[in-house]
């Protein structure tokens, strides 16, 4: 009964972390599927042991109590968590904005306030900005510098990568890359007041030439607004 809607909806969706559109979210999704597989195996194994020991008196009594504890308490979890943690930390080193894998990054500031996002593009001529729409070029690593003017918000584009908190008084950096053009959903993930529900934004990933054109038109509108004031 539950399986039907699951099969219908699958993992797709404009906000789905399981529908990756960039290398960061891709690699995290791979980690998830691997952990799900191992986790499911462990769960089935342990539950089988629970049911057998409860329902079949004498099951496993040939293994001494000490043997049970060593096998299940030490030999089962320790290799699993060791492999997992090494893999996850290696992945972290790779995905964090520490130089390395993706250099030549583009810097974009995400300024959060109750309840919208303002994106500034200091690397583009005229330093334009946009509200609730984030423009990025496809195929280039982006460093999102998240700050907040009031309370704590959190920048999250599930299809591109993890989140980064926008904390007042701090500037935290998240590295992302989109590998395909298109429009991706983004939202505020940290509760930030009654407008939390509506604090969404869109990421528009453009081919590089198109991106330049969007930046120019943003600068132009920005300048016009500046002159009007």
């Amino acid at each position: 009964m539950i399986a039907v809607p699951l099969a219908l909806s699958g993992c797709a969706g404009n906000l789905s972390a399981l529908d990756p559109a960039g290398p960061v979210s891709q690699s995290i999704a791979e980690l998830w599927w691997a952990m799900l597989l191992v986790g499911a195996l462990i769960f089935v194994l342990v539950m089988a042991l629970v049911l057998l020991t409860m329902l079949r008196p004498g099951f496993g009594s040939s293994l001494s109590p000490k043997g049970w504890i060593i096998a299940g308490g030490l030999m089962l979890p320790i290799p699993v968590i060791t492999l997992l943690i090494v893999y996850a930390l290696m992945q972290g080193e790779r995905l964090l904005p520490l130089g390395g894998a993706f250099s030549d990054t583009l810097r974009i500031e995400a300024r959060a306030r109750q309840w919208n996002w303002e994106f500034h593009y200091p690397d583009s001529p005229g330093a334009p900005f946009s509200t609730d729409v984030l423009h990025i070029p496809v195929g280039r690593a982006i460093d999102i510098v998240a700050t907040s003017e009031d309370v704590i918000h959190s920048f999250w584009v599930p299809r591109l990568g993890g989140k980064i908190d926008a904390t007042p008084g701090h500037a935290a950096v998240l590295r992302l890359r989109a590998d395909q053009s298109g429009s991706f959903g983004g939202l505020c993930a940290e509760y930030c007041g009654t407008g939390h529900t509506i604090m969404r934004f869109t990421v528009e990933a453009h081919e590089p030439a198109e991106y330049e054109r969007v930046m120019q038109s943003l600068s132009a509108t920005g300048t016009q607004r500046g002159q009007a004031q």
Binding site: T82, L89, G92, E93, L96, L98
Partner: peptide, 11 residues
């Protein structure tokens, strides 16, 4: 060993 050996490695 498990938690702190990371001092040799991570940024």
């Amino acid at each position: 060993l498990f938690c702190f050996t990371l001092v040799f490695w991570l940024s």
